[in-house]
Design a protein around this nucleic acid. Structure first.
Length: 697
DNA sequence: ATCCTCGGATCGTAAAAGAT
DNA sequence: TCTTTTACGATCCGAGGATT
């Protein structure tokens, strides 16, 4: 976005007052001033950071999307309304107190007879329900080009006065029509269940609101969420949460909405980390994410969020999970994820029949929410070796009837990918690795199921392509590790049960990540770091166990490992905390010798029961020169891999697996400190750089 | 003296309205 | 369909207040 702000001077000039031509050349007008200059109303030079911001020592950013220019709605209706309003103001009592119900941002809510007793929705289009077949969630009154998620939504201010709430917008803010509201029926609104979110706050709310974060302070973070994270979490309606009027509304937010926005913003800040220019600080000297998170938790004490369960409160817990997860505070993260799944179950999200009773649009939004939780729980359960509760037997959200089929395609593909991760996978992955746990047929089936999820991959967004692609290869790596544990490596090579399979997977991962923008890669937060680290760690182990190999495949593997390490060294603007333990894993490889001790002879025999060639092959480190090794391998029947390694390597790998040291699982958490950003590669990495090149190439 | 805020002049853009 | 009118958002000048 900041590129847009740069070099944006136009030919247009700002004319000095008066019609006469000035002798001095007219000052150029920037097409776009930075957020701070705009706010300060000072001339911006469009650079990044711009001169005024540099001078004032403030953070320069170009995050605020420009609003749409030009008149909105029908002019005649607007004029008519203005005249009516003047009429009203004359007849109204000048001393009557302001009431939120009667003085919303858009005037008198009780304007028309239709709106008596409820509050008009801020949803679109302004008049009546959409024609049949119109997808849910879209702003049908806008021209086609304006219906995308990322266009700022403009509320037609006058038509809205007369409009009735319609069902094609997510009922997150004002909607009270639906029997299944996304907000709980908070019993603090002076008795009326139909009073919407714009309510007079209770005393405690008034007290709390004195320290609250104001509505407009949320907006830059919400915009960041929709720009970077919405493709992987398409569960909230942008027509509501990108509506500037929502943030300029002077009425206090309900506790529930306030908590939700705080949690969402906290996650956005932590997940995007330094990959985007941070919006201005909420309180000088304090971490924005921490402020949002603390505010969320503080406010949650002011109402009974457990009883007031709603999709919004589920999402609040979900984003608190994301926040803690990104901080790698696993106990808290797991607590919030469990809380959120419990709330989802209480809401009936895990019950297919419960959806049938809902408004179809509402049901679609809830299906998305359920599947987001399913994906998250499966991924987290695998990463942290936990149990799962949610099952893939709820109907997936509809792609073709959605407001953005491309977006939903990606989301559904990810859901299908995790559906391939069955309960057995999770159970096996959680359990100890001291004995046989998987069988070849299951490994084969699981690997094939993962590969089967390809339909529509070409049409998904970049952010989703990375998520799906890397997640798929990550799951492949995990299944492969389970196969290694069971000595399946020297089977026919089906289902990727080959020694060099992780190199294939790393090739795919590097292909995906290097062809994508940093912004798209960075938007996935700590989860992406963990997946890349898992893949890199497994690849490192394979290379470790085949050290001394001179085949092109080996050097190719080293190259991919280096690429992934480089990506981890600058992911989200900083070095990943997983980089250090990964580098530790690699140390022995720099001098070309494996640092992993071989197990005792009897264990090695045991570990190679599945070996297809009883004669075996000498381990790479004992094989003498590369040429000798190649000669040996070329004469071996049934050789599947591109690596010139053999039995010893497989033994070492299986030993690692049985001892729980294969991959990143055994890495010590005390090594996970974050290195300063912009770190240059040290000696170890430099040595790697040299070694990753094939001899003479 | 310098910095900062913000009212408002001016402009470009886009939508509505009018003309053909 | 084309042209004109109008609304609206954006930039940023410069007056005036606050601070050093």
């Amino acid at each position: 976005m900041s590129e847009e702000g740069k070099s944006m001077e136009t030919e247009a000039t700002s004319q000095p007052t008066g019609s006469e031509k000035s002798s001095t050349p007219p000052a150029k007008v920037l097409r776009r001033a930075c957020d701070c200059c705009r706010k300060r109303k000072v001339k911006c030079d469009g650079s990044d950071p711009c001169t005024p911001c540099k001078k004032a020592a403030i953070r320069c950013a170009y995050l605020q999307p420009p609003k749409k220019k030009g008149p909105k709605g029908l002019r005649s209706a607007r004029v008519l309304h203005a005249l009516r309003q003047i009429d009203d103001s004359v007849t109204a009592s000048p001393t009557s107190p302001r009431s939120p119900e009667h003085n919303g941002n858009f005037g008198n809510w009780n304007w028309s007879p239709q709106s008596q007793g409820h509050v008009p929705s801020v949803s679109y289009p302004p008049e009546g329900p959409p024609p049949p077949g119109v997808p849910y969630g879209i702003q049908t009154s806008l021209p086609q080009q304006d219906q995308g998620y990322f266009h700022g939504v403009e509320l037609p201010p006058l038509q809205n006065q007369h409009s009735q709430p319609h069902r094609y917008a997510q009922p997150l803010v004002y909607r009270q029509e639906s029997s299944q509201n996304w907000h709980s029926n908070e019993p603090r609104s002076a008795g009326s269940e139909r009073v919407p979110q714009i309510v007079s706050p209770t005393e405690s709310e008034y007290y709390a609101q004195s320290t609250r974060i104001s509505r407009d302070q949320f907006l830059p973070y919400i915009q960041l969420f929709f720009t970077h994270m919405f493709p992987i979490m398409p569960v909230i309606d942008p027509t509501i949460y990108l509506d500037p009027h929502f943030y300029s509304n002077p009425n206090p937010l309900s506790s529930e909405t306030y908590c939700f926005l705080c949690a969402l913003c906290a996650t956005t800040v932590v997940q995007l980390d330094a990959s985007v220019p941070a919006p201005p600080q909420l309180r000088p000297g304090y971490d924005n994410a921490a402020i949002f998170a603390e505010e969320c938790l503080r406010e949650r004490y002011s109402y009974d969020f457990m009883l007031d369960s709603s999709p919004i409160s589920v999402l609040t817990s979900f984003f608190l999970f994301c926040y803690e997860g990104n901080h790698e505070r696993y106990i808290k993260a797991w607590y919030f994820l469990s809380e959120c799944i419990t709330a989802a179950e209480n809401l009936g999200l895990a019950d297919e029949y419960a959806y049938h009773a809902l408004d179809p649009v509402e049901a679609q939004w809830r299906r998305r929410l359920y599947w987001l939780l399913f994906i998250t729980e499966r991924a987290y359960a695998i990463q942290r070796r936990k149990r799962t509760r949610l099952t893939p037997d709820i109907t997936l959200p509809s792609v073709f009837e959605s407001e953005d089929p491309q977006l939903l395609t990606g989301f559904v593909l990810l859901a299908q990918l995790f559906s391939a991760v069955d309960d057995r996978f999770v159970r096996i992955w959680r359990g100890p690795r001291r004995h046989s746990i998987a069988d070849q047929a299951w490994v084969l089936k699981t690997q094939r199921n993962l590969d089967a999820v390809t339909m529509g991959m070409e049409s998904v967004t970049e952010t989703q392509r990375i998520d799906i692609g890397v997640t798929r290869e990550w799951l492949h790596v995990l299944v492969w590790q389970l196969g290694v544990n069971d000595g399946l490596l020297w089977g026919p090579g089906e289902g990727g049960m080959r020694l060099d399979y992780p190199i294939d997977l790393a090739r795919n991962v590097v292909g995906i990540t290097t062809s994508s923008s940093a912004a798209a890669l960075n938007s996935h937060g700590i989860g992406m770091e963990q997946k890349l680290s898992d893949i890199a760690a497994c690849l490192a182990d394979v290379l470790h166990c085949t050290a001394g190999d001179t085949s092109p495949t080996y050097y190719e593997g080293k190259h991919y490992l280096l690429v992934i390490l480089q990506q981890l060294s600058s992911i989200r603007g900083k070095a990943s905390r997983y980089l250090k333990p990964l580098m530790k894993k690699l140390e022995g490889l720099v001098d070309g010798q494996p640092s992993i001790a071989l197990p005792p002879e009897e264990e090695r025999q045991d570990a190679t029961e599945g070996f297809s060639n009883g004669d075996g092959v000498p381990a790479a480190q004992d094989a003498g020169t590369g040429q000798e090794m190649e000669a040996i391998m070329s004469g071996r029947e049934g050789w599947q891999g591109g690596l010139n390694a053999g039995r010893g390597s497989v033994e070492m790998l299986r030993h690692l697996s049985l001892s729980g040291e294969l991959g990143i699982a055994a890495l010590q958490s005390d090594m996970w400190e974050r290195r300063p950003s912009g770190r240059l590669y040290g000696e170890v990495e430099q040595g790697w750089l040299e070694m990753s090149r094939p001899p003479g190439g």
